[in-house]
Amino acid sequence: MPVYLETPLTKEKLKTLQVGDQVLLSGTIYTARDAAHKRLVTQIKNKETLPISLTNEIIYYMGPSPARPNQVIGSAGPTTSYRMDAYTPLLLEQGLLGMIGKGKRSEAVRMSIQKHQSIYFAAIGGAGALLSHRIKSAEMIAYKDLATEAIRKLVVEDFPIIVAIDIKGNDIYRDSKKKYRKLELFSKK
């Protein structure tokens, strides 16, 4: 059974979520991928005001394909998260509470998520058409020159995601593989 979750996130709400939970998220989230992360972090380091407040927000690692005239947004699936790992701890310090992406995070990010009691969700990579249909509005709000990589404000409805790292620091990528593993290869020396 999926868990229904609404933004804004709170630390209270996150306490009920466990690694592996299937979540249907509704509310407002922001997109940012490689180039936008680089800019956000540069601005933080230069003590400039950010174009969005990160407090209690969710960032979705996503750069959509262009929308047709009758569409809210084009294809809109997650991009690989590890490329954002270098920037993530600083954003969590700024109050960011959730991230949506795909793939394993670094140990530093996993620890930072646990420390700040935040959360990392996985969306289905390569399901951009399906995910596009769960996005009800999209507005480019910052770094517009970055085009597909600009920061967008999205309103989503029943957006399907899976808890990948929970507030206790449990990591689905580390743990779930063991369950279905049928062989041990190349024993570690």
Partner: peptide, 28 residues
């Protein structure tokens, strides 16, 4: 894996949405 089954089912649904609504299968 039950979750794995659901993901595979979602991928079939994704392909159908892509073709029927003219949205690229994947944004990349």
């Amino acid at each position: 894996s039950p979750l794995g089954k659901e993901i595979l089912t979602s991928l079939i649904e994704n392909a159908d949405i892509a073709a029927n609504y003219q949205i690229p299968i994947c944004q990349d």
